[in-house]
Design a protein around this nucleic acid. Structure first.
Lengths: 413, 413
DNA sequence: CGCAACGGCTGAAGCGCATCAGTACCCCGC
DNA sequence: GCGGGGTACTGATGCGCTTCAGCCGTTGCG
């Protein structure tokens, strides 16, 4: 196993001290441009990469973030949503040289345990949280640990939203203004400034936010805002589920459907709650009675999706339209029962995938840029880690793409 | 952010030196049982967890392993294979307190770059490698870096197998000859013997195994051995693709099918090659001409799977049976073309999933324990990291579960 | 009784890096 | 020509942990 070069090797070869190397490679002031260039050249020649352990140990961040999936394995398959999300996340993270720790666990409790361990082991600088729930122990925990977090698919602010950074008076708008997250900050690992670390513990060291002047490309001193005890509250990236649901419902209503069932996901999840609420609200607005337009919960597995489909279709007055995530399974069930789609039953897939396009008929679906959603989330986390204030970002609106699986209901109905 | 306790805190509170604490918590000799128990109690009370960075820095392993997925995102969805695999991997890893770094990249080149970076950054102790290829740059790289690796779905030893630990000058007698390639090679993981391989550097380590990281059990400290130049060759966990393909073909042949097409995956992947070869071999054995029984490559995406299906079904003498991974897409295509399944076309899914069971008709499929496969791989990697010799492990044989999608071909054919 | 051997523990060094207090040197102003 | 203020760089220290060379007190043995 070839020995890995260290800054000591670089220092020797470049004829300077180790500190000079450290300064040079981190874009800190204190070395002339000439020397800096020379050091960088040597480092490149030697194929040097910072030892992540050493970095992490000397108070710097660990250069990794975590993602925990807390679902029983068989419900994860949902149309490869997670893999696409992860792809997007990676695109951004790996460009920033940040690693992603993935953990699959059974339930939220186990998820919390993972956060605790990661925190204690100092393994991650922050986490991406998925599947926010209506009653959720995670925000409190993460905030207590001071672990920066971005909630994916977070709340739209419906009242009891444990994720909303309602807490200590975050000035309403997105203040700070300055350096908006954007790509900037090229090459130079520069910005690196002081870690996001809970300012609290640092009291002693140079009390004031002095933080010293800019320096070359260095990070502006805007990190000030960060100072809450327990670290910043979670940032949120969200998709407007409610709006999407409204759109779907309007589409079906416009076609003439009056009996519509939404095969929903796990009832404890916040986005399920939002979709259910939106469905109910829009149904009311359209004057459709709750008995005719409703949601039934499942665990997100294809199996339960199929079972639920079979159940509602067996009712005396079956729905003429179905909306769900595991639409492919549903469409197969309909085919199995000999129910023509869209002749007698319309189907809307909540999440598009190649599969939706190859089934027969192709499924009308909500097309969303899942990878883009992941990118957005990763960007927010990096923003947080760079000391920026937590923000709420909205992803692009999902677009309803009508395909062959939706049509007016049969005349008889 | 609460301060994390360190061994210093424990030492102070327990009235011993830091070294004593370290010994005690790592199950090393040098402290009495009394003291050890006291230290452990204090550690537990304080909620201490080892700082992974510090551990990694002091020559210890980093406590993380890596997995790189090098496929264009849209081909990853394949029936949630990867998520199930990862679940299995995690089960074993997290029980051992080992983290998993996941990286999704575009191609093998990028994958190699990731290995290089992980290595230089000392981020991982070992890696799990998926999608071995027929011509593969990875084994050489990993061996050069000395990064322990387990190949998932590795070779069956067909001649030009870059993964077989034939390597440089490992004591000549390489069992190579032994294990016959193709058809044979029954389950018996027995082969493990192969392991002896590469043991060279490991002499000492071998036995102990215990390891038991940090905790209770207090495994003997066998870590000594680790440092070899070049490190051990890769271990391999594999599924007997050839055997499975033979089984599938026999099933279809037994039903009377004579024109069978295998919609294969990416041609560069080793398992594709193996399946293709096995198909050809078995066809020959059964006396079926290559024109009638053949494989056509795709990129694993549902889209290409559907396209290939459409193409072969449009031929003048279309196949009466199809075998593939993206069977659901295929079955949808058949439905779309109005081709009755299994009346005029039989379909076999290479990989089972809930979806296969809810389609109509339910798909005959190869049932394999993907999560178990992941567990096996993770176990092998841990074994390797504990200083054990690289082995070749065989996963359970996939079982062909006949369901509604296979039947004798129409009489006319 | 004296010495070796051993169990139980301590002290210090070091992993690779960041950082901060200095040091050497130069330019400027008076 | 000397103090003041920079700039460019060095040395030492510490992060939390492992590890190795000891040190001390107790036994066992000749």
């Amino acid at each position: 196993m070839a020995r890995r070069p260290t800054i000591k090797d670089i220092a020797r070869q470049a004829g300077v001290s180790e500190s000079a190397v450290s300064f040079a490679l981190n874009g800190k002031p204190g070395v002339s441009e000439d020397t800096r260039a020379r050091i960088r050249r040597v480092a490149r020649e030697l194929g040097w990469q910072p030892n992540s352990a050493a970095r992490a140990l000397s108070g710097e961040r660990s250069g990794a973030v975590g993602l925990v999936l807390a679902r029983p394995a068989h419900t994860l398959g949902a149309e490869s949503f997670f893999l696409r999300l992860v792809s997007g996340i990676q695109e951004v993270l790996s460009a920033a040289g940040t690693a992603l720790l993935l953990q699959v666990v059974e339930d939220v409790e186990a998820e919390c345990a993972v956060y605790r361990r990661w925190w204690a082991e100092r393994r991650v600088d922050g986490v991406l949280v998925v599947d926010p729930r209506t009653r959720d122990p995670r925000p409190a925990l993460l905030s207590r640990l001071g672990l920066p977090a971005v909630v994916i698919g977070g709340g739209t602010g419906t009242p009891p939203d444990p994720w909303q950074p309602e807490g200590p008076a975050r000035h309403g708008g997105a203040p700070a203004g300055g350096r908006d997250g954007a790509g900037g900050d090229t090459g130079a690992p520069g910005g690196t400034g002081t870690g996001a670390e809970g300012a609290a513990g640092y009291a002693s060291g140079g009390g004031a936010g002095a933080d010293g002047g800019a320096g070359a490309g260095g990070g502006a001193g805007d990190r000030a805002a960060a100072g809450t005890d327990g670290g910043p509250g979670p940032a949120v990236v969200r998709a407007d589920d409610a709006r999407a649901m409204t759109e779907v419902l309007d589409h079906l209503h416009g076609l003439g459907h009056r009996r519509i069932v939404h095969i929903a996901g796990l009832p404890g999840l916040a986005h399920t709650a939002r979709r259910v609420a939106a469905l109910r609200a829009e149904a009311a607005r359209l004057g459709l009675p709750p008995g005719q337009v409703r949601s039934v919960p499942t665990d997100y597995s294809d199996t339960e999706g199929a079972a639920a489909t079979r159940r509602v279709l067996a009712e005396p007055e079956p729905p003429t339209a179905l909306v769900y995530v595991m639409a492919v399974a549903g469409s197969a069930v309909a085919a199995g029962l000999g129910i023509p789609v869209p002749g007698r039953l319309s189907i809307v897939a909540w999440d598009d995938s190649a599969l939706c396009r190859v089934t027969h008929p192709p499924l009308t679906a909500l097309v969303r840029d899942t990878a883009g959603f992941g990118r957005l989330a990763a960007e927010e986390l990096l923003h947080l880690l760079a000391g920026g204030p937590p923000r709420v970002r909205e992803s692009e609106l999902p677009r309803l793409e009508p395909r062959g699986s939706t049509a007016p209901p049969p005349a008889a109905y």
